[in-house]
């Protein structure tokens, strides 16, 4: 087997792990990383995106439009949840654990009652391609590209647009922003919706590749939390490098010793990173910068 094939396979595995970590984590990076809401219902926002995507595709829409619907539906649910529950809890972020855990119970069991225990899959588009002895799924490359695109879009959103600047200002010093005439309530709502929408996007993107069941969100949640936590508070400076580091560890350990060690390696990497950089990666980067 020649070097190029091996290199491509390693790169593909890395990209695959990276896409999964980053797409799982992006929504949480906004809601938890930026806003400090410990969102245990993150997996259920992902599930919501996946379900709506699958339902719209079954109804005849093409997949990209279905994913868009899934994203928007999650964002809409996010607005509702923010309005009804989260809005009252910004002063006491630890209580969001209980509230979002409750929401996640309602969402999983509610989905089971209303939609049934499973939903038919939609099938993965695009087929496969061959490199050396291995064949690969093209859709996985799409996922990797999507992860990069989401990161770029987030960077642009929070650094170059008026909303992004206002959002960062509001979340850092809310009363100052309010004094300057910013509608902080609206900003909070929109930011939360943005995070929920990103979770829905992850669900929509992964919907064609996974089993659709009410508890499917649970498979994302651990990866999402560890990526966000070791990334730290800054969405772009934290999530991207954290996803990169963890993806290297995870894909490396998995191909070397199997899936169990991939998972255990991921957890050990988290402990080490937190020990070395107690403020997360973005905390470290920002401190170096100043």
């Amino acid at each position: 087997m020649d070097i190029a094939t091996l290199a491509f396979s390693a790169l593909y595995q890395f990209g695959d792990a990276f896409a999964f970590l980053v797409l799982s984590a992006c929504g949480l990076a906004v809601i938890f990383g930026m806003m400090g809401v410990i969102n245990l219902a993150h997996g259920e926002f992902i599930m919501c995106g996946a379900y709506v995507t699958a339902a719209t595709v079954h109804a005849g829409l093409p997949l990209p439009l279905g994913i868009l619907c899934g994203t928007l539906a999650s964002a809409f649910v996010g607005v509702l949840v923010e309005l009804l529950v989260i809005r009252h809890l910004y002063e006491r972020p630890l209580d969001t654990i209980v509230a979002t855990w409750g929401l996640s119970l309602i969402a999983t069991q509610g989905t089971l009652i209303l939609v049934g225990s499973t939903m038919a899959g939609v099938g993965t588009p695009f087929g496969s391609f061959q490199v050396g002895a291995y064949s690969y799924s093209i859709y996985r490359i799409v996922l990797f590209v999507a992860a990069l695109a989401v990161l770029a879009a987030l960077y642009a959103l929070f650094n170059w647009t008026r909303f992004g600047v206002l959002a960062r200002a509001t979340i850092q010093v809310p009363h100052m922003a309010a004094a300057l005439g910013v509608d902080t309530r609206l900003i909070y709502s929109l930011t939360f919706a943005c995070g929920a929408g990103l979770a829905g996007l992850a669900g929509g993107l992964y919907a064609p590749t996974m089993t659709l069941v009410p508890t499917m969100g649970a498979t994302f949640i651990m990866e999402a939390f560890v990526t966000v936590v070791i990334g730290g508070a800054d969405v772009f400076l934290g999530t991207a490098p954290a996803g990169g580091i963890l993806a290297i560890v995870k894909s490396g350990m998995t191909s070397w010793q199997g899936q169990l060690f991939g998972q255990i390696g991921l957890l050990i990497a988290v402990i080490i990173v937190v020990r070395v950089l107690p403020k997360g990666i973005s905390g470290f980067v920002l401190r170096e910068r100043t």
């Binding site: 209980v98 509230a99 409750g102 119970l105 309602i106 069991q109």
Partner: peptide, 20 residues
């Protein structure tokens, strides 16, 4: 019955909102 988990969720959310 099957609504147990939904009730639990609702109770948790209400508790947090009503009794900080």
């Amino acid at each position: 019955s099957q609504y147990a988990l939904v009730f639990m969720g609702v109770l948790l959310v209400l508790t947090v909102l009503i009794a900080p």
